[in-house]
């Protein structure tokens, strides 16, 4: 199943693990092996039945193919997959800005472009000196690509206003 460039989905998968050391690692290994990106792990102690401990792992995959490959690989280790729950589809856009990004108030720039449902996942800056231009990367995530496109449209306007040079994915 093809998805638009930069698209991705987040899923929560619940395993029933035998409550003994090494089990969790066994379940996580196929996720990493097939390129899943783990975000959160929670042990559902209150749902424990006998020696079986349910564990919920939240991770990102590119598409359903990747998800099914991971599920099959987990099951092949003998671990039982109790449920798979799609959390959300999310989209990512990387924007890199060059200019006096800080002197022109980066907080204002970001506040103005972010709308509901869009968040800054990561911000990386390369600064040489106060006089020099800096280069700043922001990784945006959103639950729809339309929101990212409209964020970009606003950002392009702000960039013109603040004389920032941008490139985007």
């Amino acid at each position: 199943m093809a998805r638009p460039e930069g698209g991705s989905m987040r899923v929560k998968i619940k395993f029933n693990l035998v409550d003994e050391p090494g089990q969790l690692l066994k379940a996580l290994r196929p996720i990493a092996e097939f390129g899943g990106n783990v975000r959160e792990i929670s042990h559902l102690r209150e749902e424990k039945r006998g020696n079986m401990l349910p564990v919920a792992v939240t991770f990102d995959v590119k598409d359903l193919d990747q998800l099914f490959r991971i599920r099959d690989a987990v099951e092949a280790t003998g671990i039982q997959v109790a449920s798979i729950e799609p959390l959300m589809e999310f989209h990512r856009k990387v924007v890199i800005m060059v200019g006096h990004v800080f002197a022109t108030n980066i907080k204002d720039t970001i506040d103005r472009v972010l709308e509901r449902g869009v968040m800054v996942r990561r911000l990386v800056a390369r600064i040489k000196s106060a006089e020099d231009v800096s280069t700043v990367k922001i990784v945006l995530e959103a639950d729809s690509s339309e929101k990212l496109e409209s964020t970009l449209r606003v950002l392009k306007k702000v960039a013109v206003e603040k004389n920032l040079f941008i490139a985007w994915s």
Binding site: R126, T135, K137, V139, A167
Partner: peptide, 22 residues
């Protein structure tokens, strides 16, 4: 239209870290 004269080496580096080329 936007040209490329303001592309910095840092921009290229930061892009590459995400798996992109400028």
């Amino acid at each position: 239209i936007e040209g490329i004269s303001r592309v910095t080496p840092e921009m290229i580096e930061l892009a590459e870290e995400e798996g992109y080329l400028v």
